[in-house]
Nucleic acid binder design. Sequence first.
DNA 1: GGTCCGCATTTCGTATTGCGTAATCGATGT
DNA 2: ACATCGATTACGCAATACGAAATGCGGACC
Lengths: 274, 274
Amino acid sequence: MRSVGGRTRPLRAPVGEDAGGGANGHEADGARRRGVQSLEVAMGVLRALGEAARPLMLKELADRAGMPPAKAHRYLVSFIESGMVRQDAETGRYALGEFALTLGLVALQGLDIVRDTAGVLADLRDHLEETVFLAVWGNRGPTIVRWEEAARPIAVNVRVGSVLPVETSATGRVFAAFLKEAAGHAVDRAMVEDIRATGLATQRNALMQGIGAVSSPVFDHRGQIVGAITVLGADTGFDASPTGRIARACVLAGEDASRRMGYRPDLQQARRSA
Amino acid sequence: MRSVGGRTRPLRAPVGEDAGGGANGHEADGARRRGVQSLEVAMGVLRALGEAARPLMLKELADRAGMPPAKAHRYLVSFIESGMVRQDAETGRYALGEFALTLGLVALQGLDIVRDTAGVLADLRDHLEETVFLAVWGNRGPTIVRWEEAARPIAVNVRVGSVLPVETSATGRVFAAFLKEAAGHAVDRAMVEDIRATGLATQRNALMQGIGAVSSPVFDHRGQIVGAITVLGADTGFDASPTGRIARACVLAGEDASRRMGYRPDLQQARRSA
DNA sequence: GGTCCGCATTTCGTATTGCGTAATCGATGT
DNA sequence: ACATCGATTACGCAATACGAAATGCGGACC
């Protein structure tokens, strides 16, 4: 079957600006909506569960989602029915279910950056013989989406899915330096300037005592930061200095990854500080 | 504020069985519903996106979800608003968004089996010096949720989030042998019996040519299979025979993991064939 | 052991919300 | 330039979800 016709790009709303008077019902604030508003409210329940990252009682969940318990309960019944939420049989608390896991892992597979930088990560690990990972911004922090462990594994309690701190991890500081949404955090101004200038953040005693980290940003074709590549290693024999071998390799990997994401440094250098 | 009172376990529905006549509206089939039905319909949109595992056009998505395009579109607008779905700027196709990723990774962190068997997996990898992974049933197949790579990495294009085939992977066959939902697949009857008897499935040329695999089930406190531990290795020097060193270690790891999940073999052996 | 209290879950009437149908818009191919 | 196909929006009806309060249940306290 050949594609006979039709469009390929999304349309933008052709409706006139603010038409005014509502036909039926109420309509309070000025925003028009073409979607299903109860769905967006229901997403608030999931957001509350996701941000809590632990099983929640109905009352607590309803408070976090900003709705009366009866309403949250109605949503939860349907979420449970579809597997998006599960209710702990012992405690009665609500948590994200198997369907949420499934969707997330499908989304993980679909992330362009994971596919496009897989080779870069593996090469970096093989070259340095250290553990490296890729993180993207999500869930209010840098979230690990790919983990390449070195032959000499290091003992840390983070893994794919872990969210790192913004202010106290090399990875987080990279996002703080280049991502508007992360810039609000208390990161030293001089440090931000340094990270922007060098394309590199370093830290000793990262995640755990005795673990060093080096992190570099990955930009996409618009010059926006879309991820960070981080190298981890035991401080023993791990050269985390900004001019060392590991740091240089990390920066080069970040630049290589950025190129694969369509980033053209010569054209877009200025946009990075977005 | 101390906890002054209240319940800890969920309630079961105290309503009388089939009350009959609906108060208002229509109500077609016999099932009562206390939830928000439009929400469950909306979940069908996400399910379609998850099962496709690739960006979908509105028409195709609506067909898969079994609803008119206009309806699917209304849902999509709200899903996009909340970040659950993203629309590709180039093609206009719809795919799972960042919020889906976030939720899934939170759910991944919350999976008891991942936490409780992390040590078992790491020990198994260290003992055998081979790559091992943990899979749970999800998205219509065994889904990898934890990956422990050996010092000598193997080149396969699967990772956390990948869904394995049921019939042609050792991991899939374990689920086929112990999980009702997976039993429908065309797996040889004798093979199923063998896997049940030995608690082990083996395969050569798994995933790729020259890769061997050995897999064992993990049961929970009810005797239900909740996961499978699989060892991978290059066929060269990889003993995939059911009586070999690797197979024995894999079985032991599965049993150890099951114990940590609360499984008591002496009490519940009979229930496993559920 | 009895009582109280808090939380989860359900019920019920109302009107707000979403649904179906169809028109409009935009792009692609002929 | 026309025809075609798909995405997006408009509109009125009525089915659906909402809010408030009643009911059930389980633990805590006395």
